[in-house]
């Protein structure tokens, strides 16, 4: 990864569980803990979306969570990226034909913000290595955005 002029801070991530089955969520924690240890790159899980650069979203969006997820997305300050962990975010996964699913997260969030930056990390569940790679991808995209803003 080439660090450009805009690279000035480490990425902080906020984890949003939009009705996930926990499979991806435990792999996210695995990615943060010593075997994979993304914290060594300054990537940190934070407690509020207002401190975050990247939203880690797991699971399909169900009706109960839809409004909450939208509000969390709006509370995150820009420039921001969304990292969709797992197949559910892209296709709703095995729950695609359920009555309570609002739709895959990417379609849902495009309605809120058509220019949303979305990084897909497929897998059911995602592997910690794939999450690390996805964060790097989000990093690159955010660097470009920040470079344009300066």
């Amino acid at each position: 990864m080439k660090l450009n002029k805009a690279f000035d801070k480490s990425l902080w991530v906020f984890h949003v569980n939009a009705a996930s089955c926990n499979g991806c969520d435990i792999e996210i924690v695995a990615a943060l803990t010593p075997r994979y240890d993304v914290e060594r790159f300054g990537i940190k899980l934070v407690g509020t979306p207002r401190h975050a650069d990247v939203l880690l979203v797991t699971g399909p969006v169900n009706r109960q969570m839809a409004d909450r997820v939208r509000r969390i997305y709006e509370q995150t300050p820009g420039p921001k990226a969304v990292l969709l962990c797992g197949n559910c975010g892209a296709t709703s996964g095995v729950y695609y034909d359920s009555y309570c699913i609002e739709g895959p997260f990417d379609e849902f969030i495009k309605k809120v913000d058509p220019n949303a930056i979305i990084v897909y990390v497929p897998g059911c569940p995602v592997r910690p290595e794939a999450i690390t790679m996805g964060v790097v991808e989000a990093w690159k995209q955010l660097e470009v955005l920040r470079g344009e803003a300066k």
Binding site: N17, A19, S20, C21, G59, P60, N62, Q64, M65, R68, V94, Y95, D97, S98, Y99, C100, I101
Partner: peptide, 22 residues
């Protein structure tokens, strides 16, 4: 109720081998 995904309902639309993965 925030994590409801309708798994039991989905099971009634699939055959047992498919439901294994569900």
């Amino acid at each position: 109720g925030f994590n409801h995904r309708g798994v039991e309902y989905l099971g009634m639309k699939r055959n047992p081998l498919q439901v294994l993965h569900l």
